[in-house]
Nucleic acid binder design. Structure first.
Lengths: 210, 210
DNA sequence: GTTAGCATGTAAGGAGTTACATGATTTT
DNA sequence: AAAATCATGTAACTCCTTACATGCTAAC
């Protein structure tokens, strides 16, 4: 009820579960996790950490207080780690698999946290996303056949490329789902797609689906 | 100086240049143009229109005021169209080709408006985006070789897929640039890539770039 | 000794969403 | 006569960015 999605919060909790860190380092890891571009600003990160501390999900310990024999010169680096409640909250969030898990903004983060997610939830999320993308294909193809006369060449080309990208992601998901089903918990075979080679290059917009 | 990027505003002006419309219809066209998903809300659209009117770039005329002989029952539909200043402003915006034109948030809209953009600007934007994506490839490959040990299988797989997507877009841009250079103003050959067939499927992360 | 990178934060504001509020018109 | 869809708007709120502000530490 109170759980305001909060992709950023989820990512923070997920990374801190793996290993405690201070803000500055966390940001770098987050930039990789959140899609490798879009450098997250400190103006987002620090207030988010503050909020998580206020809600008792993480605690920040000044790393200079710990070592016994003096070395007291160094700058305060606040290392954050999960509390018991934080771990519980994270587990709850990771075991959920509603639409919020497979939308564009959150799917990547949920996927990156799959190591900490149980097998059934992983499959449910992958399938949810696949369904979502299939709907999107439907929408694009529909708008294509409905209004292709009124669209100029560039809009059309953009549409075509968008469709290609989505189709590519669907194939990716299919291979992932295959992998998850095949082995209970074995590793991902990178890029190998057993029965379906790359040669599906026909006229994508013809609608050879269903 | 004053030109706060405003992707939405640009898209609105671009669509209204093609043909005057009322808000509701505009929204549907915008949803296609802005990437086919992410349904734009009225809470964004109407205030944006209001702002454009306030700045004198568009005017809204109540479509029921126009017809001479009474038909006065129908609901007010406010049809918006560009003013002279609006057209000027749009031309200025469309002839610019700074980083703001080829970033993720704006590139699609700029591309969709290519019919209204001159040939040199089109090429500059396409090349700008290509360079941007090449940088991104560099970043991803770097972080991959720097920290592949510390990354779990899923993060790695996500990275690999992201790389593939970006590589695909680079090839797309290459074919578009080719097309733009080849003909001065001829149409886009849909999906046909002259010299480079789809068979570039090797180990993407090996870094066969440069 | 100065540049680059480490490290933490705050204040103001931009760009959008959700939820609310209202009513007309068309289709079933 | 009900349901869908057309049509326009506002208020509150969320999430994030930019710009500011501060100071330490390592490398050149």
């Amino acid at each position: 009820m109170r759980a305001r999605a909060g992709v950023l919060e989820l990512a923070i909790l997920g990374l801190l579960q793996e290993t405690p860190m201070h803000g500055y380092e966390l940001r770098k890891r987050l930039n990789v996790l959140l899609g490798s571009f879009r450098a997250l600003s400190y103006g987002s990160l620090y207030p988010a950490l503050k909020g998580l501390v206020a809600r008792g999900l993480i605690v920040g310990v000044d790393s200079q207080a710990a070592p016994p024999h003096a070395l007291a010169g160094k700058r305060a680096r606040i290392v954050y780690e999960l509390t018991a409640e934080g771990k519980e909250h994270l587990q709850d969030a990771l075991s959920s698999s509603g639409p919020a898990a497979w939308e564009d903004e959150s799917f990547d983060v949920r996927f990156a946290l799959f190591s900490q997610t149980d097998a059934e939830t992983r499959i449910r999320i992958l399938e949810g996303r696949r369904t979502r993308l299939a709907e999107r294909l439907e929408t694009i193809r529909e708008s294509y056949s409905r209004a292709r006369e009124r669209m100029d060449e560039y809009t059309l080309e953009l549409q075509r490329h968008g469709l290609e990208q989505v189709e590519h992601e669907v194939r990716w998901l299919d291979s992932l789902i295959d992998n998850e089903r095949g082995r209970g918990r074995t590793r991902i075979s990178r890029g190998a797609r057993p029965g379906t080679p790359d040669t599906a290059g026909g006229d994508s917009l013809a609608g050879n689906d269903k």
